[in-house]
Design a protein around this nucleic acid. Structure first.
Lengths: 337, 337
DNA sequence: CGCACCCATCAGAGCGCTCTCATTCCGGTA
DNA sequence: TACCGGAATGAGAGCGCTCTGATGGGTGCG
């Protein structure tokens, strides 16, 4: 019958015939409790269904050993992978986790951060936050902070980010090695990470002596891939390869091309970015760029731990290495002429 | 500079030149504070970066207005959709949310539930829990509980579940209307929801006079779809339609069929189940069964709210209606002979 | 047999808030 | 001018726990 009050430490103590303090010691795993008493206390607690009150505990101990995680998009498997890394590391280091979801809205992000602050988390991780840099820096002044997916230049904020330029370079190098020279990039517009991907593409085109960069506008959506492909199909000749700013764009492109009778990879090679869950599905089998997401999550926790435990005060930025995943959408260009 | 203690109510009171109690009233939105004073307090709080201590507040007020959500699989967009509904409803009703992730491991699920209990949530929602029914009922005795994706027959636990049998029926009816009579079901094995889907298939085959049910074993994975398709290809004749127990299985099936030169939907129609994100991707365009996930989340919150606010004590089971989403993997059977 | 010493146990003072109840301060009324 | 009522404010007792410092009861040693 829910409704009757949960048992308190006092009740357990009484049932076990010991003092409240001893029960407290037992629940804090103190070594200074005799096995016999420990047993007795545990049995009484079990019997009463006692669960220590986290609020009282945290209030009295002035510490929560809890880290806050702001996930903006529960729908994005990207976030889930990061969380896997976070969870594993946190439980290994003995931290609890307070999860909040921002849903990409400024108000929600702020509310989520306030919630974490009000619960006095020891530190927080913001995954792809949309808030302004100034705002994030202000939050960083209240609690140790790690931002994933953005670089914030502030002494109290650490950053973890994939080296997008390197990812672009890997994609282009792969295409170049296959013999492609005529490579178009479909842009990610103003989306997170779009700019460095584009810069990496431009840089790599020069680096690898592949001629003039050839950019088609886009915005990270499947639809923009469709539009980009349509505009490409208007040209007198198609490029031999397309480097899309993410997997969704690549899928839109491939879909449109195949409607137009253009085969991938025989006629055109396509490379995506992000290695989302869809990319590995066999009918798609998209060659793409993978980021070590689990590792990023793990790293975030350790960065926080360093600040907390070793009281590091200098800020750190980790640039993480993306890797190429070769699947079935890339092949040597068609020999013609 | 993080490290200096966060401001307390006392500090705000002092800065604003009022008593602690008045600050408390302001932060609880009490109407009995003059606008002038309220302003002053708010300004002082702002100035000090004051965030009320949630632990102290909840401890003193003996209530948290927080609902716990156990998500088992952050990777599954299914869960994210449910969470959308939960979030919207919760914020409308003024509840905070405490998210935990169980990762389908018994230990983690238990730990997550303990965490929620220790934080004295007013109620909890378990999404597709793996724990035993007896265990869930025990938890239900500690706090109001809503289980999504399973039916628990206990007075203190409410359940929300999609009517899987109805979903199967909708799929079969669609196929029958297209003219299919020879319809195979690829089984979900012991996965959650597999049994009612199978039962619905068997029931519908009889109901619609489609002949003997024809079951191929599977287990909800893409791989099992591959195996099922291979075994089907060994038969002297393929069925004209395949009803897979979920989308992943359907994708494995389609992939294998297409490798074998069998076209979908020209030679064989395929129907999935779940309407996952992949199903709508155009190169796949899978006909499938959708469940009103957002609505399920919304409903969960309201069910809890009823228990809490209206102190309903009888348990409720909501069976939610799935719907057919027709895409491009179903067509009339080939006319032959 | 007595003493020092050590360790298990306990008492009590907060942690930062809420909430009840008492008190103060008004203007309005007779 | 004396009085009254209501709005606004303040004081103080907890909420359930942790943690410091005190207490008591064995044990080993001389």
């Amino acid at each position: 019958m829910p409704g009757n009050k949960p048992a308190r430490m006092e009740d357990v103590a009484h049932a076990a015939g010991v003092s409240r303090a001893l029960v407290s010691l037992v629940f804090r795993d103190s070594p200074k409790v005799s096995p016999a008493r420990r047993e007795r206390v545990l049995a009484a607690a079990q019997q009463l269904g006692y669960q220590p009150n986290a609020m009282a505990r945290n209030l009295a101990s002035r510490t929560t050993r809890t880290l806050g995680v702001l996930m903006n998009d529960l729908h994005n498997p990207f976030f889930a992978d990061i969380y896997d890394g976070v969870e594993t590391a946190a439980s290994a280091l003995g931290y609890q986790l307070l999860l909040t979801a921002g849903r990409y809205r400024h108000g929600s992000e702020n509310a989520a951060i306030d919630t974490m602050l009000q619960h006095r988390v020891d530190g927080m991780m913001l995954i792809s936050p949309r808030l302004s840099t100034a705002h994030i820096m202000a939050v960083g002044r209240q609690a140790p902070l790690v931002v994933i997916g953005r670089v914030i230049d502030s002494p109290s904020v650490d950053s973890i980010m994939a080296d997008e330029r390197l990812g672009s370079l890997a994609a282009l190098r792969h295409l170049a090695e296959l013999g492609h020279r005529n490579i178009v990039h479909i842009d990610g517009g103003r989306g997170a990470g779009a700019e460095p991907r584009r810069a990496g593409y431009i840089h790599a085109m020069n680096e690898l002596a592949l001629g003039e960069p050839d950019l088609v506008p886009g915005d990270f959506t499947e639809m923009s891939g469709v539009h980009a492909a349509m505009s490409l199909l208007q040209r007198p000749a198609l490029p031999t390869a397309i480097f899309a700013s993410n997997d969704m764009v690549a899928i839109g492109v491939m879909d449109t091309l195949s409607d137009a009778g253009v085969r991938v990879p025989e006629d055109v090679s396509v490379v995506g970015y992000d290695n989302t869950a869809i990319a590995h599905v066999r009918p798609i089998s998209l060659t793409t760029i993978d980021q070590p997401r689990v590792e990023m999550g793990d790293m975030a926790v350790h960065l926080l731990h360093q600040r907390l435990k070793a009281s590091r005060t200098k800020s750190v930025t980790h640039l993480v290495q993306p890797t190429l995943v070769t699947r079935r959408t890339t092949a040597p260009p068609r020999q013609e002429g």
